[in-house]
Every structure is written in C-alpha cells, then in structure tokens.
C-alpha cells in the first residue's frame, strides 16, 4: 500500500476525525459499496426469511433466528465491503460481479472462520479487519504482533462499535415508530396484539410480523454497516499514517522537489 496513490487526504487525525472520515468515504463511494453490500446480504436475508417461515409452525422458543442469522454473518458482509472500499480509495472500481468473483478468496484468506466464531464478539473487529484482510499475513503469531503494534489504548474502535450499535437500534425502533404513527389506529389495534406479544417474547408473533422485523433490521444495518466498516478502515489508515509517517513522507517529497527545482 503506497500512500501517494490514495484518494484520501493523508494527514494526522484524532480518532474522532478518522471516524468522521469513514462517513465521508461512504458518501463518496456509496455506489460501489451498496452494490457489494446487497450482493452479499440479500441471499442471507432470503435465507433468514425462509428460516423464520419454516420455524413458524413450531411452538418456538422466543429466539429471533432470522435476525440472529443476519447479525451473525456481519463479518462476512464486512469483508466484501472492505474489499470494495480498499480498492475504491486507489481509484479502482469493483462491480458486483467483481465482488462475487472475489468471494472465494475472501472466504479463504481473511480469517473468516475465526471471525465468525470466537472473535465474533471482539469489540475492536472493525479495526482488526483491515489487518487480517489487507495485509495478508499468514502466520498467526506475526499477525497478533502486528495487531499489538497498531492498536493503542483508547483507540476509537470500541467507541465506534458502541455508538454504531445504538444507531442501529435507533433506526430499527425509529422505523417501527414511524410505521405506527402512520398506520390508522384501528388497524394497529386489530392486528397488533402482536406488538404487545413481541414485548413478552417472540413466540406467538405471526410470520408476517417477523418478516417486517427482518426487513426493518435490514434497513438499519444497511445504513450503519458500510459506515462501520469504512470508519474502521479509516481508523486503520490514520494509525498507519501516524506510525509510518505517511504525511511526513508526502510533505518531504514535495519539499525535496521544491529545493531541487530551486537549485537547478
């Protein structure tokens, strides 16, 4: 990765600024990001709907299997998003076909298995992801050392996860709230003892309500997850800029060129 080809301004940033840059990245490359996003997430959503439909007739145990499945596979979508983003910042566009083609190698070379099992709950996974996926270090020992070099106390990754989690819930309940504001009260009261049931548990909820729930959840993560990945990537870039002096390197190059032209 050479800094001078990056489309992102290289400078030192606080981790808040790095996180904000993540949003700027999403706003700039949303076309590429969302193409990749829906290619990987929609099949899973279909699967989740099917799962909930099949479990509908059972008495159920109150667990939201569809949502759980979509949530669980987040590290997989993240890899597709990062794959696209890490190329977009170097001016290379990956189409949705390109994402499909990249999936086999992403499955193999980005520690997906670990990410879906015991590292699924790591709070700093947005920041770890670029190290695992982009640096391509095969030896786990080396990778762990690399991670400790890059991470530092109080980096923004954990706060990022915390806030993104809250944002997701705000959007989820926001859309639900909007739905209830817009629906006529008679409709709501006749159909939605279900909503009250939802508060008690997920058992008696009809399938159509679970489906709506899944679609609203899809909406919430569609807004937040690309930002989450981009912000993690941006934190990673900022950290490497600082540790390797990328900003200094670019500045010194310009200065050297100026001094050179002056003396010739």
């Amino acid at each position: 990765m050479s800094p001078d080809a990056l489309a992102v301004e290289i400078r030192t940033r606080t981790h808040w600024e790095a996180i904000d840059l993540g949003l700027a990245l999403v706003q700039t490359y949303w076309r590429n990001l969302y193409a990749a996003w829906f290619v990987v997430v929609l099949p899973v959503v279909v699967l989740a709907l099917a799962l909930d439909y099949l479990l509908d007739h059972d008495s159920g145990d109150g667990i939201q299997y569809g949502i759980l499945l979509i949530w669980w596979l987040k590290p997989f979508y993240d890899r597709a998003l990062l794959h696209v983003l890490s190329r977009a910042v170097f001016g290379e566009t990956v189409t949705w076909r390109g994402v499909l083609r990249a999936i086999p190698s992403l499955l193999k070379h980005s520690c997906l298995f670990r990410a879906l099992t015991w590292r699924r709950i790591m709070p700093s996974r947005s920041f770890e992801l670029p190290i695992w996926q982009l640096e391509g270090i095969a030896d786990p020992q080396v990778r762990r050392r690399r991670f400790h070099v890059l991470k530092r106390r109080g980096d923004g990754a954990i706060r990022l996860l915390f806030v993104c989690g809250i944002f997701e819930m705000i959007l989820l309940f926001g859309v639900l709230g909007l739905l209830f504001m817009m629906l006529p009260p008679e409709f709501v009261s006749s159909r939605l003892e279900s909503f009250a049931d939802l508060l008690k548990g997920y058992e008696q909820v009809p399938f159509w309500f679970k489906a709506i729930h899944i679609l609203i959840y899809l909406f919430a993560i569609s807004i937040i997850e690309p930002f989450y990945v981009a912000a993690g990537f941006s934190l990673y870039l900022t950290r490497r800029t600082e540790l390797e002096g990328w900003d200094i390197e670019l500045g010194f190059r310009t200065l050297a060129t100026r001094l050179e032209t002056r003396s010739s």
């Binding site: 489309a7 840059l21 993540g22 700027a24 700039t28 806030v163 993104c164």
Partner: peptide
C-alpha cells in the same frame, strides 16, 4: 482529495480550515 475539512474564505481573503464533526462524536 477526500477529507472532512471545509475551507472557508473570509471577506478579508483569509481562508480557514474547519474540521467537520460527524454523527459519532456528536451523538456522544
């Protein structure tokens, strides 16, 4: 270049660089 800085020109011809704050720090 992609960045979160907005440069603003004052009437005196001085340009100031403002570093925009996004949703995460603002929510906190």
């Amino acid at each position: 270049m992609l960045d979160t800085i907005r440069t603003i020109e004052t009437p005196e011809g001085v340009s100031i660089r403002l570093r925009l704050a996004g949703p995460v720090p603002r929510a906190l």
